[in-house]
């Protein structure tokens, strides 16, 4: 073998060995790699914002001040868990949040609803469940009542698809009685965007409306739509006469209609671009509110319906999300970036 070739091969081998050693020294367990805003947040009636943010993989709840800056975490959880959802109580004095394992396949299917008292800074577990609680919200009219979406299983529907929560139903939990009650009996494939508007007697959520389809071909025509059930539970019925496309996240407008998240178009890279639309009639034909050209979602409306908060994932379709919180007028305007600071 030629000497220069031998030297080149030795150098490549040395560089590979050094790189592998650097990799071993610098790599972190998957649980400790998440950093920054998780995309989970809630807003009080007076506009106070609480967000869930990761620090070296630990999820924590932070309150944002008027400049949208955060101080230390009010509550934290371990690196093997995530805070899926949080909700301010109607008086804004406490926050209910749900904690579950980051990897339910390894950590077991379980969730804990915890209550954080903002005045005393103390927190306590109020309810533990052997399912995956993906979203929760306080009833805006009853500080004793929490609604939540619960998945009964966490599995993959095919060998190459990732595991996801399935068999969803809506439940309610009464704090004073420490009692839960299912409000639906659907075992739905997917459910999201739980919303209970103030003064309403309905609980809203989105899911695939495929129960009326009989054949597999018809199931492909099913779209994700907004449904509502009476607050005491029952059979879901579509909210509005149907939207012209799949509706994922949404926020019900107090006077009717909804601000909803749907696919706007496909990017040059072949990735769906999600935007927020406003439909005052609930009949579809929504007017496009955002033009982020990435992934706008998680809309939250102020009780008077005038202010809209939402989250943009600037890295949507890639391995790691990059969430940013915005505020804008609910009838359209320029979004103002709030968190994290830019």
């Amino acid at each position: 073998m030629k000497r220069p070739l031998l030297i080149a091969l030795i150098l490549i081998g040395a560089a590979t060995a050094a790189s592998a050693a650097a990799g071993l020294a610098l790599q972190k367990p998957e649980n400790e790699t998440e950093e920054g805003f998780s995309g989970v947040y809630d807003v009080t009636a007076d506009g106070s914002i609480a967000v869930v943010s990761f620090t070296e993989g630990r999820p924590g709840i932070y309150l944002l001040d008027e400049e949208a800056a955060s101080s230390g975490p009010l509550a934290e959880s371990g690196t093997d868990s995530r805070i899926n959802s949080l909700s301010f109580s109607p008086d804004g004095r406490s926050i209910a949040f749900t904690v579950s394992p980051k990897d339910p396949a390894a950590g077991g299917l379980k969730s804990i609803i915890r209550l954080l008292d903002l005045e005393s800074g103390t927190e306590r577990a109020v309810f533990q469940d052997k399912g995956l609680i993906t979203e929760l919200t306080f009833s805006p009219d009853d500080p004793d009542l929490i609604y939540f979406l619960r998945a009964g299983v966490f599995e993959n529907y095919s060998p190459v698809a990732a595991q996801h929560p399935h068999d969803f139903d809506v439940h309610e939990y009464r704090l004073s009685e420490n009692n839960t009650r299912p409000l639906t009996d659907l075992k739905a494939y997917d459910m999201q965007s739980l919303d209970v508007p103030a003064g309403s007697d309905s609980v809203y959520f989105s899911m695939f409306g495929d129960e009326e389809y009989e054949s597999a071909e018809e199931t492909f025509d099913a779209t994700q739509q907004i449904y509502r059930i009476p607050e005491e539970g029952g059979t879901p019925e579509p909210a509005g006469d149907g939207y012209p496309r799949d509706v994922y996240g949404f926020a019900i407008i107090p006077d009717g209609g909804a601000i909803y998240q749907a696919v706007s178009k496909t990017s040059d890279e072949g990735i769906f671009e999600y935007e927020l639309f406003r439909s005052d009639s609930g009949q579809g034909n929504g007017r496009q509110l955002t033009r982020m050209r990435t992934h706008a979602g998680n809309p939250v409306l102020s009780p008077d319906g005038k202010t809209l908060w939402f989250v943009e994932d600037r890295n949507f379709g890639k391995e790691r999300p990059d969430f940013h919180l915005y505020r804008m007028p609910a009838d359209g305007g320029t979004p103002e970036a709030l968190f994290p600071a830019e």
Binding site: T16, A22, G23, L26, Q27, K28, E30, E32, R320
Partner: peptide, 11 residues
């Protein structure tokens, strides 16, 4: 960026 080391792939 992701703090993951794909050593077998590099080798």
């Amino acid at each position: 960026t992701a703090w993951s080391a794909y050593i077998p792939w590099l080798i």
